[in-house]
């Protein structure tokens, strides 16, 4: 691929006191690509998201978005440029109805500029646009679901609500932090086409996942993390064939046994 990189992460390091959560991680992603980031628990996946989106300050390293240095910018500025994220632990506004959850991002400066999801041009009534976005993301428009309090919605809808908040900003990049986790097989099956739709709409997606089978279906490229370091990168098959990846997931002793057996 010879396209221009939309996001370039170069050598980011994050230390929490004496613990190095990220150690000199570099990668880049092209426009319209879906990059999957996998790795065992505590390998620094979510820390990468927090660093890119400005929710935590990194110790060293640089991040470029469309060639512009966004290192150290505050979170709302980065979101304003079009780099949005979902939260692993869902963060809806529990005391508001679902569609009002989308009205808040539609009130942001970026949504006012861009006119909201697919609407184009001037932003109409935010409530209507909010319900449009929810319908897009799988809320049944003519049911009570979009009007229900976020506190009463099941996990599947809350995960969608996280995506809806990103979509309201007409994003260029969506970083999905474990959108499949906690969902049933059928719910995941209905989420996968949604992610594919994002790609068709020209949105670049970074997915952090534990559900490898579903991830491999949608992702163009996979990056593997372990103990804060990037240990492999490539297509799903390449990565799975990698010995260090197997060691990270199954432990070195077991891998040797499996290798011997093979």
């Amino acid at each position: 691929m010879n396209r221009q990189a939309i996001l370039e992460v170069s050598g980011i390091t994050k230390k929490f006191g004496g613990i190095t959560a990220l150690n000199n991680v570099s990668f880049s992603i092209h426009t319209g690509e879906i990059l999957g980031i996998i790795g065992p628990n505590g390998s620094g996946k979510t820390t990468i998201v927090n660093c890119i989106t400005g929710f935590i300050k990194m110790t060293s390293g640089k991040i470029y978005f469309k060639g512009k240095n966004i290192t150290g910018k505050p979170a709302h500025k980065i979101a304003d440029m079009g780099v949005t994220r979902t939260f692993q632990i869902m963060r809806p506004y529990y005391s508001l109805p679902a569609y009002k959850n989308v009205v808040i991002p539609l009130f942001s400066p970026r949504a006012k500029r861009t006119g909201g999801w697919r609407g184009g041009g001037k932003l109409g009534d935010r409530n209507t646009v909010g319900i449009d976005i929810l319908e897009e993301i799988g809320f049944e428009r003519d049911s009570f679901v979009p009007y229900k309090m976020a506190s009463t919605l099941p996990t599947g809808y809350l995960k969608r609500l996280e995506l809806a908040r990103c979509l309201a900003l007409k994003p260029e990049i969506i970083i999905c932090d474990e959108v499949f986790s906690g969902l049933s097989m059928s719910e995941i099956a209905s989420m996968v086409p949604l992610i594919e739709r994002l790609q068709m709409d020209g949105i670049t997606v970074i997915m952090i996942e534990h559900r490898l089978r579903e991830l491999f279906r949608v992702a163009n490229r996979i990056m593997v993390m372990n103990f804060g370091e990037k240990i492999a990168e490539g297509t799903a098959d390449e990565v799975m064939a990698d010995k260090t990846v197997k060691e990270a997931y199954f432990g070195s002793k077991e891998v040797e046994e499996v290798m011997d057996y093979a």
Partner: peptide, 17 residues
Amino acid sequence: RGVKDNDQAVRASGINI
């Protein structure tokens, strides 16, 4: 009300809390 409920989500929406 969003700031009260969940200020991190408001930041993620590109709004300066």
